[in-house]
Structure formats: structure tokens, C-alpha cells
């Protein structure tokens, strides 16, 4: 069973890795977008999927990362990839400041406040706060990233940058969810009174979940800015947050493989059914409704964590 799953993962990875060889630039670019949203949705998955915090303002952190990179790069000409951690830090810091006072809010209340946050960020960008965001025109002339002397320019080059970053993210987040930290988030999602009563500082973990999620979204913003070379507030509106929210819910809360599949479906399907024009959103909507009724935990819900219990008890062959 486990071996079969590994084979499937390996085949998918190889096909994905080779896909720029047989896809045209348009479709490679679609896959790049899927990759960016995969990473964004994985970062939201920490907050929404694992900690169960209804956060619908993730685009705000994405925007902060993108604008941090754009502003510093166009003003001081610091190379893009050096700004990757800086973008993450700015977004993470913003999460710390914003989430601190609202962390005790539950469910729908938190949802409303985070929607407010993403709107505040967007309007602030449009209004050209401090004269550095370029208003509704945004910022242009952002440099391309240079990786080990290789200038990343064409869609297929971005493809390997983005999916390489996605692979690192998957690797690290998989470790994160199979740890004391990941478990703590699940405990407080399941029952935060019981989690607190078991000795878990629930407010602290909710906050750290926000900071890690925002940090990653900020880093994705950095790559997005470099990929587009021009960014505007339009790219970070409320709808982007909704799409990310949808990817996590549709794919499976707390499930890495579910979120990846969710990103492919939510971004890929509308592209595939482009010829149906407006009807595609109708089909898509109907699909979402059906999902919410028949598979409430998402398409690929998380697998239970594995512990070497049998081995530790010295039982053999019982598993």
C-alpha cells in the first residue's frame, strides 16, 4: 500500500519535472502559477489546515512580500534572491503584529477580521502609502532573479525555480507536521480547551502558525514579483485569498498531497475548460458544492501519522 503510493508520487514528480520539455510556454506558465499557488496554499495550510484558524487574508502577506522585494530591488538594486528571506521576515513580522491582538478570536470572527486585514493592505497599496507603493499602477522594472550566475528569465527557467522551492517547502512542512509543533496545532484545532489543559500554550502556537505561514507567503511574493517584473495591488485582492482558502478546503485540510492536488484543480481546471468560457465557473461552482456535501474533509484528507509503536513494543509482524 505504502509502496504503491510512493510509486505514484515518483511518477507524478518525474512527469512534472519533464513537462517543460513537451509543453509550450503558455502551459509552462500555467504550471508556474500552479506552483506559486501550491506553495502559498501549503503555507496557508499551516494556519487553516493544521491550526484550524479561519484565515481569509493570506494574500495580504503575499502582497507584503512582493512589495518588499519590489521596493528594495527597484530602489537599491539588491539582487532578488537575497531579498527572499527579507520578504519572508517582513511578512512574518506583520503577521506577528496583526495576529497578536486577534488570536483569541474564534471561527467566523477571525475570518471577518482577516478579510478586513487583506482589504486594508490592498487599499493602502492603492493609496500609495508613504509614496513607496506606486499607487494603483504598482511598481515596475523589478529585476529577474539570478541563481548561481544563471539569469532566470524564460518560463521554463522559472518553472524549475518555483517547483524547486515547492519541493523544499513540501520537504520541510512534512517534517514540521510530523513533530511536536505539528501535533500541537492539531490538538488546538480539535479542542483548544483540552489542548490548553494538557499543557499546550495555545495562543503561542496559533501565533507561530500565523508567523510561519506568513513568512512563506512573503517568500512566494518575492518570486512572484521577480516573475512578473511588475506588480500592482490588483494581484493581491480579496479573491486571491478566497482561492487559497478554497484550495486548502477542497484538497484536504492538513494534507500536503491534498493541497497540491487542490492547487492543480483550482488553477488548472479553469484553464483546461477555457473554451467553455463563462460556463466553466458554473461547473466549477457546482463541483465545489458537491465536494462540500460529499467529501467534507477534502479530496485527499490527511493520512494518520505513523509512529513506530510496534517496533518499540518489540512486537514483530503484527503491523
Amino acid at each position: 500500500m505504502k509502496d504503491k503510493r510512493l510509486v505514484i508520487y515518483a511518477v507524478i514528480s518525474v512527469v512534472l519535472l519533464l513537462s517543460p520539455l513537451f509543453l509550450n510556454a503558455y502551459w509552462v506558465d500555467v504550471l508556474n502559477n500552479v506552483g506559486l499557488y501550491t506553495i502559498l496554499a501549503l503555507s496557508l495550510n499551516i494556519i487553516l489546515g493544521h491550526a484550524g484558524l479561519f484565515h481569509m487574508g493570506h494574500a495580504a502577506f503575499y502582497a507584503l512580500g512582493a512589495y518588499t522585494t519590489a521596493i528594495i530591488n527597484t530602489t537599491y538594486h539588491i539582487p532578488i534572491l537575497w531579498l527572499l528571506p527579507v520578504s519572508g521576515l517582513v511578512a512574518g513580522l506583520a503577521a506577528l503584529v496583526v495576529a497578536r491582538p486577534i488570536i483569541h478570536l474564534r471561527g467566523d470572527y477571525l475570518l471577518i477580521v482577516t478579510i478586513g486585514f487583506v482589504e486594508i493592505v490592498r487599499i493602502a497599496l492603492v493609496n500609495n502609502v508613504f509614496g513607496i507603493t506606486g499607487g494603483s499602477n504598482g511598481i515596475f522594472g523589478i529585476n529577474r532573479p539570478i541563481l548561481f550566475g544563471w539569469k532566470i528569465n524564460k518560463p521554463w527557467e522559472f518553472f524549475y525555480l518555483i517547483w524547486g522551492f515547492a519541493a523544499v517547502t513540501i520537504f520541510l512542512f512534512n517534517r514540521l507536521e510530523n513533530s511536536r509543533f505539528g501535533r500541537a496545532l492539531n490538538f488546538l484545532r480539535e479542542d483548544d480547551v483540552a489542548a490548553e489543559g494538557s499543557g499546550i500554550n495555545t495562543a503561542h502556537y496559533k501565533l507561530i502558525a500565523f508567523v510561519i505561514g506568513a513568512f512563506w507567503a512573503g517568500m512566494v511574493g518575492n518570486i512572484f514579483a521577480a516573475k512578473m517584473t511588475i506588480i500592482a495591488p490588483e494581484s493581491f485582492n480579496f479573491w486571491e485569498s478566497v482561492v487559497l482558502f478554497m484550495i486548502v478546503l477542497l484538497g484536504g485540510r492538513g494534507s500536503i498531497r491534498g493541497v497540491i492536488l487542490g492547487a492543480f484543480l483550482v488553477l488548472g481546471l479553469p484553464e483546461i475548460f477555457r473554451q467553455f468560457a463563462t460556463a466553466r465557473m458554473l461547473i466549477f461552482g457546482a463541483f465545489m458544492v458537491a465536494m462540500m456535501i460529499f467529501r467534507t474533509e477534502g479530496i485527499l484528507p490527511p493520512l494518520p501519522r505513523k509512529y513506530p509503536i510496534a517496533k518499540m513494543l518489540g512486537r514483530e509482524g503484527s503491523a
Binding site: A194, G197, S198
Partner: peptide, 19 residues
């Protein structure tokens, strides 16, 4: 009873180990 119902028994006990 306030257990973490969707998690394994061992994980419920690991919640106690957390602190």
C-alpha cells in the same frame, strides 16, 4: 470527555508529553 477524537490514542497521550 474532551479527547482529540480524530487523532490516535497515542497522539492524545503525546499531547500530555508536550509540556
Amino acid at each position: 470527555i474532551r479527547l482529540f477524537h480524530k487523532l490516535a490514542a497515542i497522539e492524545n497521550v503525546l499531547a500530555g508529553c508536550h509540556c
